[in-house]
Nucleic acid binder design. Structure first.
Lengths: 109, 109
DNA sequence: GCTCCTCATATCGACATTCGATATGAAGAG
DNA sequence: CTCTTCATATCGAATGTCGATATGAGGAGC
């Protein structure tokens, strides 16, 4: 598990989708929101965040447009597309499946 | 999530440790046991299994010795070391932490 | 106007893990 | 003696995260 890599690989995408399902945000805003949603368990570094955002956008799950942050900075705002919403549902179900399997395995006598 | 890679990256090690905590097994036996423990959710391919076993052994969490399988085949039997047992406890706790964070995040309004 | 800090986005190389394919060899069945 | 199964093993490709580093603009203080 997170030994060298604090983040469990593959879980970041669904967290980003979830963060953006609640409200559109710019990049660093997503990072903060994920951190908050996971009660600080996930700290998303820029080196992970931006590749992930680009990846999700390229897959058509996010739509981006440039705007201004609360501090008058140039910021790229992301929001969930319809396909992204569907993907979120799919990945959430998949996560539950995996978590259930892990739970069953780790709690075996 | 498991899109291109069916296994959630980083979860295999703890499952192997768990499988061997219940009883010593040879390589393919571990694979079968993990599959059974996760109710079929995890199917561990040889290309993932053997590197993982070697990795865990190298870290001192498993001890291996050659023996004979039930079918009279030459097989390498693995068992958990004391350090492995400690590692299992550690990774189990870590999993619970991550799973709890994911659960909180995905169930947020 | 100048300097410094913070916000915001971005990219790069390194690293670990899993996958798919392929290989070897021995036991047992027919 | 051939074919299938069991058992271990390795290799190259793909993926995702990290650490470091870079750029540039806004705002504060002097």
């Amino acid at each position: 598990m997170p030994r060298h890599t604090p983040l469990l690989q593959g879980t970041l995408d669904v967290l980003i989708l979830k963060a953006l399902a609640l409200q559109p945000l710019h990049g660093l805003g997503v990072s903060r929101r994920v951190e908050q949603l996971t009660r600080g368990a996930y700290v998303v570094k820029p080196g992970s965040l931006f590749p992930a955002l680009h990846r999700l956008e390229e897959n058509g799950w996010l739509a981006a447009e440039w705007g201004e942050s609360e501090n008058n900075r140039r910021a790229k705002y992301y929001k969930l597309t319809a396909a992204g919403r569907k993907q979120l549902a799919h990945e959430t179900a998949e996560w539950r499946r995996v978590a259930g399997a892990m739970r069953a395995a780790l709690e075996a006598d």
